[in-house]
Amino acid sequence: MSIILNAAVNMASAGNELDFDPAVVFEINGHYITETVTTTWIIMAALVVMSVLATKGMTMVPRGLQHFFEVVVDGIHYLIDSTMGEGRRYFAPYMTTLALFLVFSNLTGVIGIRNPTASLNTTFVLSVLTFLLTQYYGAKEKGVGGYLKSFFEPIPFLVPLTVISELANPVSLGFRLFGNMLGSVVMLGLLYHFAPILIPIIPHLYLDVFVGLIQAFIFVMLTMTYITIGMEG
């Protein structure tokens, strides 16, 4: 009995090597800059470089990187047409940026780097952006009066509930991505703890590639859906 208790205490104590916090890379004025931030910088730089390379010397018949990005933009246009309706393609730049950033940051786990999206800060910023876009385009589409009136829609008595349900959207959106990616990080960490070689390959395919791509897709689709509901509902 005491052996089990001691083992449990050892497992749960902070001194063991099972630590799922992002590593601190360096420190400025007492602020810790973690892996999450530096990986985000690297992904941003890679995306900028790739965009510049893809749009440099564009040809009518696309080749190479330009071709790849034309396929991506076409896919986003198709999604916007079928989810948000015709004539909403001005959302394509934001949605494409979001999709590319999420795909890249959800796939960093494949090369052994902790996902930036496994931190609540990253996902919450993205979901708050979605929330602000929803409110802004709702007010723009329906006019400020119509926007405010939409909160009193069924009966004015339910205003607090309407506000709470509106505020719950970004919370669940941020937590969904965060929970999925942190779940992957934790499960792979535990797996590496007792089976360091060969065995984690298949779980990597599911936990990093499959879950990462699905969650990136879901985040973009839900952003589109929320903005459309805000504009029309």
Binding site: A12, F20, F175, G179, L182, G183, I214, Q215, L222
Partner: peptide, 23 residues
């Protein structure tokens, strides 16, 4: 997939609670 992602929300909340309790 969209519906399943929304249905998953409560499970993710539970996972976050469990992870907070553990780590």
């Amino acid at each position: 997939l969209l519906g399943q992602a929304v249905a998953e929300t409560t499970g993710i909340y539970a996972l976050v609670v469990a992870l907070i309790l553990l780590f």
